[in-house]
Write a protein that binds this DNA or RNA. Sequence first.
DNA 1: ATAAACCCTTGAGCTAACTCCAGAGTCAAG
DNA 2: CTTGACTCTGGAGTTAGCTCAAGGGTTTAT
Lengths: 149, 149
Amino acid sequence: MKIGDLVKQHGVSVDTIRFYEKQQLLTPSARSEGGYRLYSHADNQRLSFILRAKSVGFSLQQIRELLQIEDNKSQWQCSDVKDKVQHKMTEIAEQISELQRFYQALAQLDQACCGGSVSATECSILTALEQGQPVLAEQHIPKQECAKC
Amino acid sequence: MKIGDLVKQHGVSVDTIRFYEKQQLLTPSARSEGGYRLYSHADNQRLSFILRAKSVGFSLQQIRELLQIEDNKSQWQCSDVKDKVQHKMTEIAEQISELQRFYQALAQLDQACCGGSVSATECSILTALEQGQPVLAEQHIPKQECAKC
DNA sequence: ATAAACCCTTGAGCTAACTCCAGAGTCAAG
DNA sequence: CTTGACTCTGGAGTTAGCTCAAGGGTTTAT
Ligand SMILES: [Zn+2]
Ligand SMILES: [Zn+2]
Ligand SMILES: [Zn+2]
Ligand SMILES: [Zn+2]
């Protein structure tokens, strides 16, 4: 199986496969006489493994670590694998938390602004960014009666 | 006010300030005879604006757009500002969604594995990544009686 | 035999937001 | 007047995960 056949099956680019090889993730098990990469069924499955791990958020570095386990299963324990998964879960939970903090801060800014067709000279979003005063919920101004804007 | 004074007030590095200048975010309003950057009170406030916008998740590019409005408030409307905020909220919501999908997929993998001190040869996490079969909740194996691992 | 389609290697470029470095000039205190 | 802290410019390097381009060699179909 040549590289072109492989990528068609998995919907990735040729460059990506060669990049994964440089990253020590997937090395073709043989080469043709002319130097073409030849992939076995096992190679094909290894790529599936990589792509599935990617699809749940693992980085290539982390996938490399998972593959080390996969390559030598008997020398590792369930706890090793589960630890990797839980560590990733923690990482992702942290990222989600930060984004949620952003989201809530933005929602407060959003609430405070009438969003009308009215000069931004006194927009409370800009004011909040200038002065850093947290925009309190009770400072919200109803749409039809925006005093500031 | 020289660059060192400015960074002490805001807790950013000198390089960051010069980088922001290259990015057209913050240009010192004057230079000393020897060529030192001199920042006015307005410059100082502008940096506050930038850092607050950053703290709610805006990219430097987006901050540049916000500053265009800030610099010419009378030519813009509340709706322009609110649109930027809402657009960012949408972006962040999308990022959160993707991370949550990752998280849920990982949680399923996590559930399926006993995490014990037992060979990984039949770890259901690895199996799932190899075969891509979604790990069903009922396949979960209680900790004390992990048949596979 | 020849043309199209495929593949090879090497190395550079991309995005974002810095960070660091070399080599030189400026400023303030003692 | 010298020392040390500060600042300047220009350019390169960082991380992650690709993506592209140049200049060739290989395969396969007609
Ligand atoms: Zn407004
Ligand atoms: Zn308003
Ligand atoms: Zn397991
Ligand atoms: Zn188990």
